[in-house]
Amino acid sequence: MTMTGRSMTSLERVLTTLGHHEPDRVPFFLLATMHGAKEVGITIKEYFSRAENVVEGQVRMRAKYRHDCIYAFFYAPLEVEAWGGEVIYAENGPPNSGEPFIRRAADIAKLEPPDVRGSRCLHKVMAAIEMLKQRVNDAPIIGVVMSPFSVPVMQMGFEKYLDVMYDQPELFDRLMRINEEFCVQWANAQLQAGATAICYFDPVSSPTIVPRELYLRTGFQVAKRTLARIKGPTATHLASGRSLPILPDIAETGTAVVGVSAEEDLAELKRACRGKLTILGNLNGVEMRTWSPAQAESIVKAAISKAGRGGGFILSDNHGEIPWQVPEEILLAISEAVHKWGNYPLER
């Protein structure tokens, strides 16, 4: 509740928790993308083909699931599409990146970033954000970028990228500088269109993927340089990757939020983040497909009990994208559980 006794708006709730204070209730980010297509009653491919569809889907989902954000994320390979890469649509899952467009490491030498304003697919997202901004004024609109350090997995494939990272430092540096320019422009364009904050997806920085010593020389430096130039608040999401060993480093990059893994204990994460980073997570999206409503309730209750106290916690999934196969009934049960067990002060 606010001082006047009314419920907080989603935006107030989120800002309060980001300030490491307890709002009226634990904020809940349902990072659902494809489920919007179900709401609108069209295929995934059709859904993402027009900004209006995504706007309608996001607004309808928020009304149904009563969560605290609008998620302006379309799909992971959107940026690759802007670079001229291939996007493959599926009937029952997120669009996936096709064959990498950087075929040989040497191609990096002549790589040029796409023009954000001139890209049709990026323009579609900006248009959606502008429309969402007109329709929603009580919840944060979350824009999304892939980190310059993580997007090469889609640009050139994981193996080739690791080879470059380890064996060809000059090409690696060039790739980072090009990607940073694009990332900053893309993030700022979304903020200008009306996004409240930017989620910086950076799974390769996770200790699941690279050891901390390497991260400190690479992804950490990239994040510090990039986030400093993004003209709005940022959240760093490791998309299911672990974060515990690098949480103090992540805090130093200037981000306010960290998206955490289902493979780590929320209580331990909370101890490490308290007062420094807000935790976003960590319901297991893949397992969610087979939960019963009762299971969903007890898992949500446990998560809130581990990480909710003192604010600095937003309940969400662990990956930043709810799988298509998760039934509506479970999303409703998760929402119901947050509204039932997430009210501050939390029960002891």
């Binding site: 690791l162 699941t208 993927i209």
Partner: peptide, 14 residues
């Protein structure tokens, strides 16, 4: 080690 979070995937690869 990777399973336990003590080794990174890049180390497994290399």
């Amino acid at each position: 080690g990777w399973e336990d979070g003590k080794v990174a995937l890049s180390q497994v690869y290399m």
